[in-house]
Amino acid sequence: MHDITLIQGILLVVLAIIVGLDAWLEGLFIFRPIIVSTLTGIILGDVTLGLVCGGLTELAFAGLTPAGGTQPPNPVLAGIMTPVLAYTAGVDEKTAIGLALPFSFLMQYILLFYYSSFSVFMVKADKYAKEANIKAFSRLNILMLAIVAATNGIVVFLCAYVAQSPMRHLVESMPEWLTHGFGVAGGILPAVGFALLLRVMMKKELIPFLIVGFVFASFIPYSNLLPVAVIGAAFAMYEYFNNQKNKTLAPAAPSTSSEGEDYSDGI
């Protein structure tokens, strides 16, 4: 049983900000529990504890990937809170993994909320893009990164230093429908993005290809869209070769050029 000093608390906040940003960007992968727990162990002055917690947590989290768009329990909070709980509560490492899970869920919910609500910033981004306003566009991106960084710092400060048990109660009292609702929203929101895409590209000549791609992907739910792209490539080749053939048969035919016009503001 140990207490965490203020200095250690602050160092954990710095760690959380750095690895939290890395987790958001999926950059250097220093956000994985094996790295985060080790560094947490160093901050707490017990490297071995950090290493053991890191190894165990990493194994527990290796199968939980964000691939395919689902957000797994947050690895940063798991990486920090597992050694912190083992250190402060004096429980063994395996028990600490379970105790750290609510904190991991808490961060997962916050990020899910951001993933949905940051959609609103895209309207601003569109506006700056239209104005070719590089400065404002960069500032907007930095703002979102800052929100993520600050959130990681604050949550870790609250969970690890200020109020461990109240935070756990908070997570445990969150209603199921709310947390599930975030997930549901995440599943539906891409529809708005695709609708925007369709608004720019939808030409009636292109509808057949859209239908084929959709039907193919609905009936052959494969882990990636490469097969759909290959089918699309087949259509594209067909179109291209026909086009070349027509060109050699009737050079500069007026029909080809007007047909080309139709695509001028396609996707």
Binding site: G69, G187, I188, P190, A191, F194, L197, L198, M201, L206, F209, L210, I211, V212, G213, F214, V215, F216, A217, S218, P221, L225, V228, A229, I231, G232, A233, F235, A236, M237, E239, Y240, N243, G260, Y263, G266, I267
Partner: peptide, 19 residues
């Protein structure tokens, strides 16, 4: 033109895969 066709096919697939 061919790239547009390829893109449209993939968008159809994207709707099924991501929403």
């Amino acid at each position: 033109k061919s790239a547009t066709i390829l893109g449209s096919t993939v968008i159809g697939g994207l709707i099924a895969a991501y929403v």
